[in-house]
């Protein structure tokens, strides 16, 4: 059975997007309007299953009458709003934000970032070889997760997924301040001693690969991770009666990763430790 959301029909709001008149449902964000018009706006901290964190500032656009640029992922469209997504100011902002991120963080596993960088001519090496970075050793303190915070852009998504937006485990938080801020358990306690329940929902939302499944990480390390050779099959978890959708990522007739569709009304992309990691028995031959 497909669940269809039934509500009052929404009013349409008229706005101008890059010179073109656009009508979007009331409550839509500028990003929604751009997506509807087929305009691609880069985003990093935006998550389709999370409240906007407004932290990465990659999606900034220019709204006429606003002193500063505004985050398109969270700013709702207002009647008569005039938005420019490709003005000189937005281009400069996007370029600099990507350069700043790239100068401090390892973005090598962040999807699309190379395209965005070349599209706007960003060059993170401009800040010189002595620019301070966040590079640090990878943390492997448990058999399921790998945490490589040298790749972390502080988007808050893992904290939000772990906290009151989804999992309510509150195992991690942002600690410290400014450039020294970091994602941490209390007193940097190893994950097995923390409140972590290994649901993997933080990894699901991580946009840079700073968090990864140990299995995927190991296969990437020894060069056997091959996404092009993987199939994805969505099924239903057999462990309990909730009926979560599982997407099995299979490579060489072996499950290598389990995710859940974000549009699933049961999971919204979230799983528990059993659905996420309890599949070894399938391939015990």
């Amino acid at each position: 059975m497909t669940i269809v959301e039934i509500g009052l029909p929404k009013r349409l709001v008229e706005m101008t997007l890059d010179g073109e008149s656009v009508r979007v449902p009331e409550g839509a964000t500028i990003l929604d309007a751009c997506t509807a018009k087929g305009k691609s706006i880069p985003t990093l901290c935006y998550g389709d299953t999370l409240k906007p964190a407004n932290a990465c500032r990659v999606c900034m656009v220019e709204v006429e009458g606003s002193r500063t640029l505004v985050p398109s992922c969270s700013r709702k469209v207002e009647p008569g709003m005039v938005v420019h997504t490709d003005s000189e100011r937005t281009q400069h902002s996007r370029k600099l934000v990507l350069e700043l991120l790239g100068s401090a963080t390892d973005l090598s596993t962040t999807p699309h970032v190379d395209e965005w960088m070349s599209a706007c001519g960003a060059d993170p090496s401009r800040f010189g070889p002595e620019a301070e970075t966040k590079l640090q050793p990878t943390i492997v303190d448990n058999p399921l997760y790998v945490r490589d915070y040298g790749k972390c852009i502080m988007c808050y998504k893992c904290v939000d997924a772990c906290g009151d937006q989804w999992q309510n485990s509150f195992a991690i938080s942002v600690a410290g301040r400014g450039f020294d801020s970091r994602i941490s358990t209390e007193f940097s306690t190893p994950l097995p001693d923390s409140a972590c329940v290994y649901c993997g929902n933080c990894i699901e939302v991580c946009p840079t690969g700073a968090l990864s499944f140990k299995r995927e990480h190991d296969k990437r390390e020894d060069g056997t991770w091959d996404e092009s050779a993987q199939t994805q099959t969505t099924t239903v978890c057999t462990f309990c009666g909730v009926g979560c959708n599982l997407t099995l990522h299979v490579q060489d007739n072996e499950i290598v990763k389990v995710t859940s569709p974000h549009e699933s009304t049961v999971t919204h992309g979230n799983l528990c430790i059993k659905g996420r990691f309890g599949w070894q028995h399938v391939q015990n031959r």
Binding site: C56, L100, E132, R177, G178, F179, S181
Partner: peptide
């Protein structure tokens, strides 16, 4: 020192 670290322009920009 006083940047809270929430957004990229300020967190990394003040360092650069």
């Amino acid at each position: 020192d006083e940047s809270c670290g929430q957004c990229v322009p300020c967190r990394i920009g003040t360092v650069r």
